[in-house]
């Protein structure tokens, strides 16, 4: 009996020790999120070529090729659709906190919100733009988990008051070994799960302007949790960190591409 009690006390002690070792402090949690933002940020310009494939239940698969541009220092973003022909020239421009959409076939700009599904796909502007998780959300640590074969930090993020974000509640699973985000779940304010996203492949490229490496997900897979079965895959095929045209982030520039 004495041996059983000794065993229980030992097990409890070890568990407590393990829990204490695993629990991350708020500073450590913030550091994880800051690191996610920082490694994806480029202090200069950023251009990437991507493919977006949308699959919806009982509908045709849709495929787009697009190029997106970022000027992280000025918080500017633009995505311009290149293919198919019918979609070529359509684009979104983010200036400050404004998101505008342009359709060359009617020659009109419209103001859109952060919740806009880009051309009806499951992707949002924020999925392509610079990561601003630390700026937009407060983070708490949930625990350590396994995601497939990877040991991951499970984090919960809540939007800061006044931040215009696509989803007010987010959960992240960050690889402990590489600090790459592997999984993200987006929730509505009602805590209804809206979307699950996986980032299975990451790449890094050296940036002259940042004097450090810039990380980007080579593949992003969005799964719609409301319309089950709908999914969007984004593949980033090329990244270019050379300086962009100074006047690129203007309505006039985007319009000029389809004139």
């Amino acid at each position: 009996m004495k041996r059983v009690w000794s065993g229980l006390v030992l097990t409890a002690g070890l568990s407590l020790q393990a829990t204490m070792a695993l629990a991350a402090t708020q500073e450590e949690v913030d550091a994880i999120v800051k690191e996610l933002d920082e490694r994806q940020r480029n202090s200069g310009d950023y251009k990437a070529l991507c493919y977006i494939e949308q699959k919806e239940k009982d509908k045709n698969d849709l495929v787009y090729q697009a190029v997106y541009y970022r000027r992280d220092d000025d918080d500017k973003f633009m995505i311009l659709f290149l293919k198919p022909k019918s979609e070529a020239g359509k684009g979104y421009l983010r200036l400050d906190k404004n998101l505008f959409m342009y359709d060359p076939t009617v020659g009109k700009w419209e103001r859109r919100t952060e919740r806009e599904r880009l051309l009806g796909t499951d992707s949002r502007r924020g999925d392509f733009d610079e990561s601003r998780l630390h700026e937009e959300y407060n983070t708490t640590w949930v625990g350590e988990e396994k995601l497939g074969k990877f040991a991951v930090h499970h984090l919960k993020l809540k939007a800061k008051p006044g931040e215009d974000v696509a989803y007010p509640l987010v959960e992240l699973w960050v690889d402990k070994a590489t600090n790459n985000m592997l999984k993200r779940q987006d929730y509505a304010l009602s805590e209804r799960l809206m979307r699950t996203t996986y980032y299975p492949k990451w790449k890094k490229v050296y940036s002259e302007s940042k004097k450090a490496e810039v990380y980007y997900p080579e593949e992003i897979r969005f799964f719609d949790e409301v319309e089950k079965g709908n999914r969007t895959t984004v593949v980033i095929s090329e990244v270019d960190l050379h300086p962009l045209d100074p006047n690129l982030f203007t309505k006039a520039w985007l319009e000029s591409k389809s004139r």
């Binding site: 995601l147 497939g148 074969k149 990877f150 690889d175 070994a177 590489t178 790459n180 592997l182 996986y198 299975p200 492949k201 990451w202 790449k203 890094k204 490229v205 050296y206 490496e213 990380y215 080579e218 897979r221 090329e238 990244v239 270019d240 960190l241």
Partner: peptide
């Protein structure tokens, strides 16, 4: 995506 065959380590790309 995250089974045994997967690799989460970032692949370094030469300066494009």
């Amino acid at each position: 995506l995250f089974g045994e065959a997967s690799d989460a380590a970032p692949v370094e790309v030469k300066r494009p």
